[in-house]
Amino acid sequence: MTTEEVKKLEILAYEIRKDVIVALKNAKSGHTGGSLGLADIFTALYFKVLHHKPEDPDWAGRDRFLLSNGHVCPVWYAALARAGYFDVEEFRTTLRKLGTRFQGHPSRLDTPGVESSSGSLGQGLSIGVGMAYAARFDNAPYRVYVGMSDAEFQEGSVWEALMAGGNWKLDNLTAYIDRNKIQIDGSTEGDVMPLEPLKEKLRAFKWNVIEADGHDIKEIVTAFREAGAHRGGPTMIIFNTVIGKGVSFMEGKAEWHGKPPNEEEAEKALKELDEHIEEMKEGGD
């Protein structure tokens, strides 16, 4: 990737953050922190990594992307909108409102680009394993991607899926963990139910494990490429992220897991994001 390209995507990731803030402010409910924390990963996915055709969401050769932790769908909707699946304004104004195509949690039958409905944690990886199994059976060229939260690894079914994916050596499957170490009741490690040593556990389940900075576009893209090149088993990318990334008063705060910004907070957040975009633009190289 050229530095110019990286910079373009970095700026786009901040535009997506702005979409998320506006949509959640208008919705008056929803999950802000995780959505902001994933903006760089979703930008990399939809603008660099995934093979897809926004004008033809059902294109048979598309890579499949599943979002297992459906509650962070605002960032998904924003990335899909910016990629051209639908009008960004429709998303920003109707999210979570009666009659919308943009449900509070992803709904396959409502939103173009959504492969599977999700919202109850711990289900996406199993579906991805099934899709990867089918793709391999058909010798299909596409890959299957699954986005996961870290706390959902507390669900037992995730380990069932890990066992199957590893056992079947599904190297057409890449999953990532949004490792922000924050869940509703606090820190995954200190307050609730620790996941560590996570890498070792995943390797024991026969997964290839890559760790990367979830806020560095270049590292994110490289991690996905390495995963795609790996043979003999599925890959799990642990992306270290900061919940609320990009908005200083939300960063690292569990309280921003499940609440939207009010008018005043949104204004403050948008101002900060705009300033950051300006800095990046002026930054040059």
Partner: peptide, 13 residues
């Protein structure tokens, strides 16, 4: 639980 969702993945494919 995994069985049902692997089936879902097959069905969606």
């Amino acid at each position: 639980q995994n069985m049902i969702n692997v089936a879902v993945g097959l069905a969606l494919s």
